[in-house]
Protein backbone atom coordinates (compact mmCIF):
# COMPACT_ATOMS: atom_id res chain seq x y z
CA UNK A 1 0.00 0.00 0.00
CA UNK A 2 1.48 3.29 -1.04
CA UNK A 3 1.17 6.26 1.26
CA UNK A 4 -1.36 8.89 0.36
CA UNK A 5 -1.90 12.44 1.50
CA UNK A 6 -4.91 14.73 1.34
CA UNK A 7 -4.68 18.05 -0.41
CA UNK A 8 -6.87 21.09 -0.47
CA UNK A 9 -6.72 22.27 -4.07
CA UNK A 10 -7.22 25.57 -5.86
CA UNK A 11 -6.64 27.28 -9.17
CA UNK A 12 -4.42 30.21 -10.08
CA UNK A 13 -4.78 31.35 -13.65
CA UNK A 14 -4.94 27.96 -15.35
CA UNK A 15 -2.67 26.14 -12.96
CA UNK A 16 -3.74 23.61 -10.37
CA UNK A 17 -2.29 23.83 -6.88
CA UNK A 18 -2.52 21.83 -3.70
CA UNK A 19 -1.79 22.45 -0.01
CA UNK A 20 -1.77 19.58 2.52
CA UNK A 21 -5.11 19.70 4.35
CA UNK A 22 -3.45 19.70 7.76
CA UNK A 23 -2.10 23.17 7.05
CA UNK A 24 -5.44 24.59 6.00
CA UNK A 25 -7.59 26.17 8.68
CA UNK A 26 -10.53 26.94 6.44
CA UNK A 27 -11.64 28.04 3.02
CA UNK A 28 -13.93 31.04 2.74
CA UNK A 29 -15.47 33.11 0.00
CA UNK A 30 -14.33 36.61 -0.82
CA UNK A 31 -14.05 38.93 2.16
CA UNK A 32 -13.81 42.65 2.15
CA UNK A 33 -10.28 43.73 2.90
CA UNK A 34 -8.66 46.77 4.44
CA UNK A 35 -5.65 47.75 2.41
CA UNK A 36 -2.39 48.41 4.17
CA UNK A 37 -0.51 51.26 2.53
CA UNK A 38 3.27 51.17 2.19
CA UNK A 39 3.62 47.40 2.32
CA UNK A 40 4.43 45.27 -0.73
CA UNK A 41 1.57 44.76 -3.13
CA UNK A 42 1.58 41.02 -2.41
CA UNK A 43 -0.14 41.87 0.85
CA UNK A 44 -3.60 42.75 -0.36
CA UNK A 45 -4.96 43.74 3.00
CA UNK A 46 -6.40 42.62 6.31
CA UNK A 47 -9.59 40.66 6.77
CA UNK A 48 -11.71 40.16 9.83
CA UNK A 49 -12.02 36.45 10.39
CA UNK A 50 -14.54 36.25 13.23
CA UNK A 51 -12.69 38.78 15.34
CA UNK A 52 -9.26 37.59 14.32
CA UNK A 53 -7.31 39.91 12.03
CA UNK A 54 -5.74 37.96 9.20
CA UNK A 55 -3.34 39.16 6.52
CA UNK A 56 -4.33 38.30 2.96
CA UNK A 57 -1.58 37.47 0.46
CA UNK A 58 -2.39 37.46 -3.23
CA UNK A 59 -0.86 34.31 -4.67
CA UNK A 60 -1.17 35.60 -8.21
CA UNK A 61 1.07 38.50 -7.30
CA UNK A 62 3.29 36.16 -5.33
CA UNK A 63 3.85 34.08 -8.46
CA UNK A 64 4.24 37.17 -10.58
CA UNK A 65 1.08 36.40 -12.56
CA UNK A 66 -1.12 39.13 -13.88
CA UNK A 67 -3.92 40.49 -11.67
CA UNK A 68 -7.47 39.21 -11.74
CA UNK A 69 -10.02 41.39 -13.46
CA UNK A 70 -12.17 43.50 -11.17
CA UNK A 71 -15.17 41.27 -11.63
CA UNK A 72 -13.21 38.21 -10.59
CA UNK A 73 -13.40 37.99 -6.80
CA UNK A 74 -10.70 35.87 -5.17
CA UNK A 75 -11.37 33.15 -2.60
CA UNK A 76 -9.51 32.80 0.69
CA UNK A 77 -7.55 29.74 1.65
CA UNK A 78 -6.65 30.34 5.29
CA UNK A 79 -3.55 28.45 6.37
CA UNK A 80 -1.91 28.15 9.74
CA UNK A 81 1.62 29.47 10.04
CA UNK A 82 4.00 30.01 12.90
CA UNK A 83 2.97 33.63 12.95
CA UNK A 84 -0.75 32.96 13.14
CA UNK A 85 -3.25 32.45 10.37
CA UNK A 86 -2.60 33.88 6.90
CA UNK A 87 -5.04 33.91 4.04
CA UNK A 88 -3.98 33.10 0.47
CA UNK A 89 -6.07 34.72 -2.22
CA UNK A 90 -6.72 32.28 -5.06
CA UNK A 91 -8.97 32.22 -8.13
CA UNK A 92 -11.11 29.22 -7.41
CA UNK A 93 -11.33 26.38 -4.96
CA UNK A 94 -11.08 22.77 -6.13
CA UNK A 95 -11.90 19.50 -4.39
CA UNK A 96 -10.04 17.90 -1.55
CA UNK A 97 -7.96 15.22 -3.24
CA UNK A 98 -6.10 12.22 -2.05
CA UNK A 99 -2.77 11.91 -3.81
CA UNK A 100 -0.43 8.96 -3.88
CA UNK A 101 3.18 9.63 -2.95
CA UNK A 102 4.23 7.36 -5.76
CA UNK A 103 3.16 10.03 -8.16
CA UNK A 104 5.21 12.79 -6.58
CA UNK A 105 8.19 14.32 -8.29
CA UNK A 106 10.39 17.27 -7.38
CA UNK A 107 9.93 20.35 -9.52
CA UNK A 108 11.60 20.21 -12.95
CA UNK A 109 14.87 22.00 -13.27
CA UNK A 110 13.41 24.23 -15.92
CA UNK A 111 10.98 25.84 -13.48
CA UNK A 112 11.60 29.54 -13.56
CA UNK A 113 11.04 32.68 -11.56
CA UNK A 114 9.17 32.85 -8.28
CA UNK A 115 7.65 29.44 -8.84
CA UNK A 116 11.02 27.84 -8.34
CA UNK A 117 11.09 28.64 -4.63
CA UNK A 118 7.37 28.35 -4.01
CA UNK A 119 6.65 24.95 -5.54
CA UNK A 120 7.76 21.99 -3.49
CA UNK A 121 6.99 19.47 -6.17
CA UNK A 122 4.43 18.07 -8.56
CA UNK A 123 1.89 15.27 -8.28
CA UNK A 124 1.15 13.57 -11.57
CA UNK A 125 -2.59 13.06 -11.32
CA UNK A 126 -4.55 11.25 -13.99
CA UNK A 127 -6.13 14.32 -15.48
CA UNK A 128 -3.55 16.97 -14.75
CA UNK A 129 -0.55 18.00 -12.71
CA UNK A 130 -0.93 19.37 -9.18
CA UNK A 131 1.71 21.79 -7.92
CA UNK A 132 2.37 21.60 -4.18
CA UNK A 133 2.69 25.06 -2.65
CA UNK A 134 5.32 25.65 0.02
CA UNK A 135 3.15 27.73 2.34
CA UNK A 136 5.87 28.83 4.75
CA UNK A 137 8.02 30.05 1.85
CA UNK A 138 5.04 31.83 0.36
CA UNK A 139 4.57 33.70 3.63
CA UNK A 140 8.21 34.17 4.53
CA UNK A 141 9.27 35.55 1.20
CA UNK A 142 6.45 38.06 1.42
CA UNK A 143 8.36 39.16 4.46
CA UNK A 144 11.50 39.65 2.39
CA UNK A 145 9.45 41.56 -0.07
CA UNK A 146 8.51 44.05 2.62
CA UNK A 147 12.13 44.75 3.31
CA UNK A 148 13.00 45.15 -0.30
CA UNK A 149 10.29 47.67 -0.94
CA UNK A 150 11.28 49.77 1.99
Amino acid sequence: MAKTQQFCTFFLQDQFFGVPVQQVQEVIRYQEMTRVPLVPSVIRGLINLRGQIVMALDLRRRFGMEDRTDSQLPMNVVVRTDDGAVSFLVDEIGDVLEADEEHFEPPPETLKGQARELVRGVYKLEQRLMLVLDTSRAVASADDGVRKVN
Binding site: P37, L38, V39, A142, V146
Partner: peptide, 10 residues
Protein backbone atom coordinates in the same frame (compact mmCIF):
# COMPACT_ATOMS: atom_id res chain seq x y z
CA UNK B 1 -0.13 43.03 13.43
CA UNK B 2 1.48 40.00 11.93
CA UNK B 3 5.23 40.01 11.68
CA UNK B 4 5.26 40.91 8.00
CA UNK B 5 3.49 44.18 8.66
CA UNK B 6 5.49 45.29 11.65
CA UNK B 7 8.38 46.12 9.39
CA UNK B 8 6.61 49.32 8.45
CA UNK B 9 6.70 51.53 11.51
CA UNK B 10 3.64 53.53 10.56
Amino acid sequence: LSKQLKTVNT
